[in-house]
Design a protein around this nucleic acid. Structure first.
Lengths: 215, 215
DNA sequence: CGCACTCTGTGCGCCGCGTCACTGACCAAT
DNA sequence: ATTGGTCAGTGACGCGGCGCACAGAGTGCG
């Protein structure tokens, strides 16, 4: 977009800071703004009636969320909370719709980004359907390892993820995550260091996941 | 769209018939056409490496599929097969992209339809995460019952669904489905008739699902 | 009619993993 | 140094559901 257009959009945006764990969107609420993460990270979650928290996605700065309700005016499909101190810009629905109706290129980019979300939403479904709980934990480690590769067969994950977080992502319990991790440590596949989780044998970890996928 | 435009699009479409169970799209293949179901029903599926089949969605006549690859030129994210004799129209990627870039209203409708898919994709994730296998079967029965309501508290599902199909949808086994169904029959909640599955007490069935959702 | 095939119904044994209940490490605040 | 918080690690227990195996039931076909 041109600098001019950006500036005019910026003016209709509301900027707001959110503290750690503060709620940005409440599921079922009827707001229809689109949000942009300017600084910090946010988490898209859903709660079962029993209060169990299911993490659907974590978003980094630069990502946008809330498009669904803006597009179809339905209630929010999920809750969003700040993972740390965040600066978030919100754009009113009408301006958002105006932009996508006038700018085919932006509409196209949005289409592609939704396509990507749809694509990635089948992964957890497949994982939940075909993998056992401890394999899902291993798969999640593999995923996180991608962003901290060291050489060809090692990776470090930093900061060390909180067990409960992993559990929420892959729908299992804190205890199961702990057990998988200590099993892997016993087999010399991972090692818990001071402030980093070192994956010492990516290949073998991958093998453990694939093996079950195709048994 | 105007009749003229429709006619010109129709001319660039390829029409093809598919027999029962014939494959229309193969996952991982590199085609990028968009498809439209003209007659019949199709099923979007995915296979785990072990060959287990996971049904993602069933589509009726009038629905479209294959937009993802057309939008981002990535390989197909899932396989699609005919559920019966089908007539399917396919539109080449370039024409499809041309249409959405020229017609903001159509792009908008596509955006809304993707939004709907994203919305509905969180349901199975929540169900898989929070519901036990037999409750998922019950939930699936409830869903199917919606399209065959009889009075306020009864419904009939026709044709009688094949147990293996339900199992594939809710990620469990044929046996579990059979067991749930006979349990329900024993409790006088469903009854298997000649060519229809009669749900005799919708309220109670709903209660059984909700109860666990909120335990 | 009888054969083959698909779908259903159910009994049983095994084990994965969720739950409960503690212990212990680390850190910050007072 | 004491307390209180969060997070990690492990053992014991029990249940749900998957897999296997086998026995009907229903249907089409030669």
């Amino acid at each position: 977009m041109s600098a001019d257009e950006l500036r005019s959009l910026e003016q209709v945006c509301t900027f707001r800071r959110f503290a750690d764990h503060e709620q940005i969107i409440d599921r079922q609420s009827n707001t229809t703004d689109v949000f942009l993460v300017v600084e910090g990270r946010v988490r898209v979650v859903n709660y079962s009636l029993s209060g169990k928290e299911i993490t659907l996605e974590d978003l980094e700065a630069g990502a946008h969320f809330g498009e669904l309700s803006a597009l179809d005016s339905q209630p929010r499909s999920a809750s969003v909370m700040a993972l740390e101190n965040c600066l978030v810009a919100s754009l009113p629905q009408d301006r958002f719709l105006q932009v996508i109706s006038q700018r085919a290129d932006i509409a196209y980019r949005l289409l592609r980004s939704l396509a990507k979300i749809v694509r990635s939403s089948t992964d957890p479904i497949m994982d939940l359907s075909t993998l056992a709980a401890n394999n899902r934990v291993q798969a999640d480690l593999l995923r996180q390892a991608q962003t901290g590769l060291v050489g060809t067969n090692q990776a470090e994950i930093r900061p060390i993820p909180v067990h409960g977080d992993i559990a929420s992502r892959v729908s299992t319990t804190r205890e199961t995550v702990a057990r998988v991790l200590s099993d892997l440590a016993r087999q010399n596949i991972v090692e818990r260091k001071k402030d980093v989780l070192l994956i010492k044998d990516l290949a073998q970890l991958r093998e453990m996941v694939e093996e079950v996928r195709g048994d």
